[in-house]
């Protein structure tokens, strides 16, 4: 195994454009490490979504496609059906995956597409400047819920992993977080598993990673990490929701 500090081969040397302290960077690294660890770099195709990670194609040192907003699971389906022996993953935010792209996601999962979805939940739309996402917590202030998300107007946060767990298609579903080192290690393990089940041709895999958005939450990175722990964990419990024995 490579040493912890050497950058993974599956990441390019291009510096990230993410805001200081944003955990998109850590999650990129975990995905890169998983690809290295499984030695699949040269047969992996990644699909970038639309969100702050829209430039992911610059960072993952593998073949990449850029999808329209929300459509990454459909694009990944297309790739995987043409190249079944390749490894295909998507990297999507919560607006992309759980709002505009929910239909594509649910149907890819229901079909049991052999793809790996990395789902970054930061409880808002980062790229466009902090609007409400489907995962925004009740009472959370965003630019489109200026007095806090209220049930009457904007309903409840969506728990994607739990929802997908009602389907037969997914074989691996986990929710992890990156707010402290112990959780980062668990997140790494989950992401590796989500690729392994694809290598074993078992079915659809998704890892939801709770992440911070210091810029739009209006918090310093350290404060944002504790906000995640305090407020997001109770709504989005961590753990494996579907796993192969």
């Amino acid at each position: 195994m490579s040493s912890t500090f050497a950058p993974p081969e599956a990441l390019t040397k291009v510096p990230f454009h993410y805001c200081p302290g944003c955990t998109h960077g850590i999650i990129h690294r975990l995905v890169g490490e998983a690809i290295d660890r499984l030695s699949i770099r040269e047969r992996t195709i990644g699909v970038a979504s639309v969100g702050c990670s829209v430039l992911a194609y610059n960072y993952f040192n593998v073949d990449m496609q850029q999808a329209a907003h929300g459509r990454a699971p459909a694009v990944a389906t297309g790739i995987k059906r043409v190249l079944p022996d390749r490894v295909v993953f998507t990297y999507q935010g919560d607006g992309d995956l759980a709002s505009i792209g929910l239909a594509e996601l649910v149907h890819a999962a229901a079909r049991g597409e052999r793809i790996t979805v990395i789902f970054v939940n930061n409880a808002n739309y980062g790229m466009t400047g902090g609007q409400m996402a489907p995962t925004t917590l009740l009472g959370q202030i965003t630019t489109t819920t200026p007095s806090g998300r209220a049930v009457k107007e904007a309903g409840y946060p969506l728990r994607v992993v739990e929802m997908l767990a009602t389907l037969e298609g997914p074989v691996y579903l986990a929710r992890v977080s990156v707010h402290d080192p112990a959780n980062v290690i668990r997140a790494r393990r989950a992401i590796i598993k989500a690729f392994e089940v694809q290598l074993q041709d078992l079915g659809f895999a998704l890892v939801e990673v709770l992440s911070i958005c210091p810029t739009n939450w209006g918090k310093k990175p350290v404060e944002a990490l504790s906000w995640l722990k305090e407020h997001m964990l109770p709504v989005f419990p961590l753990g494996e929701f579907r796993a192969v024995s």
């Binding site: 466009t128 400047g129 200026p146």
Partner: peptide, 19 residues
């Protein structure tokens, strides 16, 4: 509506104003 640059202020303004 749905957020997208460069029209998002319209949506954000109405999120405040319409209520």
């Amino acid at each position: 509506g749905y957020p997208i640059t460069p029209q998002t202020e319209l949506l954000e303004y109405l999120a405040r104003r319409l209520p």
